[in-house]
């Protein structure tokens, strides 16, 4: 596709042929049951990841119909610092007697929509810029490279603090910054993938068959060959967003009390940790860990499954 490449494909092919063994009959991959098609570990990763995603749904549904054990912001001076498994409080209560389980469940809402916003900004921006740079090439590519380098050269935290200082400490403003700073990674990955695919003959074959450029980009490139890449960037981005939201809420820049976020829960509980009341901060800290792990494993597993990467 790019000009000036004097074609010399024969050599590569012959070399490759030596290492790719042709098998006898038509393979039976398609007819295998799921658990034989893919590695068990990948399926477990995906199952665990989906469980974490399911908790998001639980949080919104429970919040909407008030199915929570307690109102998460309800102060109860009679039950301050109730230990876990005490009557009525499965995970205990905090220094104001608020139910930790209810606050944990509502804390999911603190990261989810902001995280989704950040991820959608970096994915959509990255896809558009990546396609322009990879498929068009030339001058467009140069300009996009300059832009991504520019964004990359600003420390993310400094940008966030600038935004907080200029506007107000709102989690959505912060997530917009996070989304924009995430664009370069996605754009580069997509552009590289397109450059790699452009050397493959099936794109040329699709052009020869009379497919529209739009169809080739959306179907052959994005849908079939970039979805694994996008999924892994989305899940990793979500993990990063959770970490950022909880860190900032811990520092007091993010979600403000009394609305619960896992970050400000850890912060408010930390004062009582050394007094032996470990649960108000430990429970949200564990929630952060297992959730980020869940999103990362979900991306890993889906990536391996979609790319047919199997351990031999």
């Amino acid at each position: 596709m790019t000009a000036g490449r004097v074609q010399e494909p024969e050599r590569e092919i012959i070399f490759m042929k030596k290492y790719i063994q042709t098998s006898g009959e038509i393979g039976d991959f398609s007819t295998l049951p799921v658990w034989q098609k893919y590695a068990i570990a990948d399926l477990v990763y995906v199952a665990y990841g989906l469980l974490i995603v399911a908790l998001v749904v639980v949080s919104y549904v429970a919040g909407m119909f008030a199915w929570l054990p307690y109102d998460p912001q309800q102060i109860n001076m009679d039950a301050m610092m109730a230990p876990p498994l005490s009557e009525g409080y499965l995970l205990g209560s905090d220094f104001m007697g608020r139910d930790i389980l209810s606050r944990l469940i509502m804390g999911i809402q603190a990261y989810f929509l902001p995280g989704l916003l950040a991820v959608s900004i970096s994915l959509s921006g990255g896809v558009v810029l990546g396609i322009l740079s990879g498929y068009r090439g030339g001058r467009v590519e140069t300009i996009i490279t300059y832009f991504t380098n520019l964004v990359d050269s600003f420390p993310r935290l400094v940008l966030i603090l600038l935004v907080v200082a200029a506007f107000k400490p709102d989690i959505y403003y912060i997530m917009v910054v996070m989304g924009i700073t995430g664009i370069p990674t996605v754009a580069t990955a997509i552009a590289n993938k397109i450059r790699f695919l452009a050397q493959k003959n099936f794109i040329e074959a699709a052009i020869a068959l009379g497919l529209r450029t739009r169809v080739i980009i959306v179907k052959h490139i994005l849908w079939y060959n970039c979805r694994a890449l996008l999924i892994i960037h989305a899940t990793i981005g979500m993990g990063e967003a959770i970490l950022l939201e909880t860190s900032l809420s811990y520092l007091g820049f993010g979600v403000q009390e009394p609305v619960s976020s896992w970050g400000n829960m850890v912060q408010s509980g930390a004062n009582y940790f050394l007094q032996g009341n470990f649960w108000p901060s430990t429970a949200p800290a564990l929630a952060i860990m297992f959730t980020i792990l869940g999103f990362n494993l979900l991306g890993d597993g889906l990536n391996n499954i979609l790319e047919d990467r199997r351990e031999k």
């Binding site: 494909p9 092919i13 790719i20 003959n201 099936f202 068959l209 497919l211 052959h220 060959n225």
Partner: peptide, 28 residues
């Protein structure tokens, strides 16, 4: 272009690895 088609050298690179055979054939 439909009247003129191409068969490539490398059978590994000339088919989209993520599409089923029926989809590949139907596309054109």
């Amino acid at each position: 272009r439909g009247g003129m088609q191409m068969v490539f050298q490398d059978p590994y690179a000339s088919l989209n690895p993520k599409m089923r055979v029926a989809e590949i054939l139907q596309e054109g």
